[in-house]
Simulated scan of single mutants.
Amino acid sequence: MKILNVGYIALAPFIGGSERSLQIILLEATKSKKINPILFCPAESPMYEWAKINNISTEKVALNETDSFLKVLKLRLQLVFLFRKYNIDIAHSNQVWSYPSLSLVPKLSNTKLVCHLRDPINEDIDWWLKVKADALVCVSKYIQDSLKSNYSAYNEIANIKTLINPISEHALANAKNVEESKIAARKKFSLCQSKITFGFIGQISPVKGVLEMLEMLSYCQTVDWQVIIAGHDTTKQQDYLLRCKAFATELGISKNVHFLGFLEETEDFYHSIDCVIMLSKEEPLGRVPLEAGAFSKPTIANSVGGLKEIIIHNETGILCKIDSLKNIAETIERTSLDEYDAMGINARRFVEKNASPSRYLSNLHSIYGKIIK
């Protein structure tokens, strides 16, 4: 099959899990010699500068300017023009939110359409996918099942696949000098070297269960622990972040809680911890347990959504229910550092087997090939 020109459409107002997954796809595509990737995103998106730095072709497209009919029409016509300019074979929307901008493409070009489904799905999906895609890519079986239950045209789409997000080769860190890396990372973050160290990384928002995590840790009386919280509250007022900080003080555990803010590079975060805690109330997949596994770190997670697909209970991590925070605390008190290390080794093996970027791109290329034929 010829080299495919694939246009990746990304709103990407910030770099989150969806964007990190796209970065891996773009980098792997440039190495594969099977796909020629072109990124289409807003000029103010951090993905635009990232693409330039990494020598990935990119075009500024105002995907975020949709507050009037004329702007929407201009955006859609611009995409059609650019697809013709680059001879785009496939337009791949990185999330459902940017997919409607492709509505004129089937009428005005020969470009095939792919939409990546990375977020929770409800009955609104019919509106977002009003124009039928040639293929839909789901990040988990949980998302694919939700799609089947809510999308009226599900049976009309021939290519619907589940692909677990890839983890970069760089993140699949060398296993040597693990202890040295841990010591250096803890020193960088001013952490105690001897305490069992938990970590949370991601958006600091109610759905991620950060308040619940803090309350749960306050019940851990027989474990000498500390926790680092990396990420940012994306709201202007920072209300939830402020509540978390105040709650840590109220619980009397603030000396053990370290808020790091947003981290551009996450390696030292994973090096410094013994285990990730992820008490999300809803999670389409959960990229963090895969990233943690790449660094041989297990995850304690709420048993919801796609998390159940990437964490094997008592093998690569611990699945629990956040309706009983004291029970989770009791589990932590019974778990030794050696047990965290053993689960971390298993988590690494799981990631190597299921989330390698080369395997991911091969599966994605197979999907592209089917719709081109």
Rank of each mutant, 00 (worst) to 15 (best):
L129A: 05
L75W: 08
E44K: 11
K132V: 10
A62T: 12
V96S: 12
I53W: 06
I121P: 00
K52D: 14
S93I: 07
D67C: 07
I53R: 10
T58Y: 05
V61I: 15
Q95T: 15
P37Y: 06
A153C: 13
L26Y: 03
I88P: 00
K148R: 13
I157P: 06
E49N: 15
V61R: 01
S93Q: 11
F81S: 11
M47H: 06
F40R: 01
I121H: 02
V61A: 00
W127N: 04
I24W: 05
G16W: 08
I24R: 05
E123H: 14
R20E: 15
I143M: 12
Y151W: 11
W50C: 01
C138E: 06
P120A: 07
C41L: 02
G16H: 09
N159M: 07
L77F: 11
W50Q: 02
Q95V: 08
G16I: 03
S101D: 02
T66H: 08
D134R: 04
K107W: 09
W97V: 13
D67M: 08
K52N: 15
I24K: 06
L27S: 14
C41S: 14
V114D: 06
N155I: 04
L102T: 01
S103L: 12
Q78H: 09
K112F: 06
P100L: 07
L77D: 05
L22M: 08
K107S: 14
H116V: 02
A133C: 12
K141G: 15
K71G: 01
L102W: 05
A133I: 09
S149G: 12
V137F: 06
R76Y: 04
E156M: 09
